[in-house]
Design a protein around this nucleic acid. Sequence first.
DNA 1: TTCCAGGAGGGGG
DNA 2: CCCCCTCATGGA
Length: 279
Amino acid sequence: MKYRIVDNGIEILEKNDFCPKHIFECGQIFSWEEQDSIFKVTSGNCFAKIYACNSGYFIETKFCEYFENFFDLKTDYSKIKKQLKEFDFLNNAINFGAGIRILKQDKLETIISFIISANNNIKRIKSTLAKLRHDYGEDNGEYFSFPTLDVLKEINEQYFKKIGAGYRAPYLCKTIKMLYDNSGLLHDELSSSKTLLTKLVALSGVGPKVADCVALFAYDKKDVFPVDTWIEKVFHDLFPFAKNRVQMRELLLEKFGDLSGFAQQYLFYFKRETGENII
DNA sequence: TTCCAGGAGGGGG
DNA sequence: CCCCCTCATGGA
């Protein structure tokens, strides 16, 4: 995909493999809002606005290098989509979310966000995280950054409950302490997916599904397949027999291999938005 | 009123 | 290993 870094942002010069609506609505990130076709997104302590411009989009930001990596601009999504379309039953889902890109998000923020996401709905997840940034993040005028680990460590369970985290509040406090005592996981760039998942699942409030999401959305792991309630529905469309989530994950990983993470996002977005049968 | 939401922890068999 | 129950919360 053609793009160009300029003084105050990044010019996306074509629309085939980049659509902010698809990227943000597909459930991989909660720290964004859309108003009058302008998308505002925060990640860690960075911020950008994205809007249509000429024949593409403009990412207005002073954090160009961060968002070049964040939006995974160096990866060829046309090639990925072409490979995945060899699975006939994926064509509808890929065409529906053709502008999806898997983001490379802040690790700490992604762990906290997806602990909150468990058995929750996206609207309240976004609300809870926005309150957290507002109350404990740095005020940068147009946006609040995600709080640092030092700041998070001082937050008690009552506060997390107050902003809507519910029974996940103690999980958050425990995990924050674990990360504070051993922050190596937040800088892990080398572990294999299997090793990384083992480390993530050891955190409080992180089970197999949350670990897969964190690995996919923050650690650049694509050989994972988060199975949530929507993917369960997809699975029942594809296979006329019931399995538990572990078995579903194994079958889907076997089918999609190193492209599993991409396939998962197209399927999740399509199913959640349309409710239509995959086949 | 019951069910559901990007599930996980804990206990028992 | 597996199955079952509970967890906070608000919208449908």
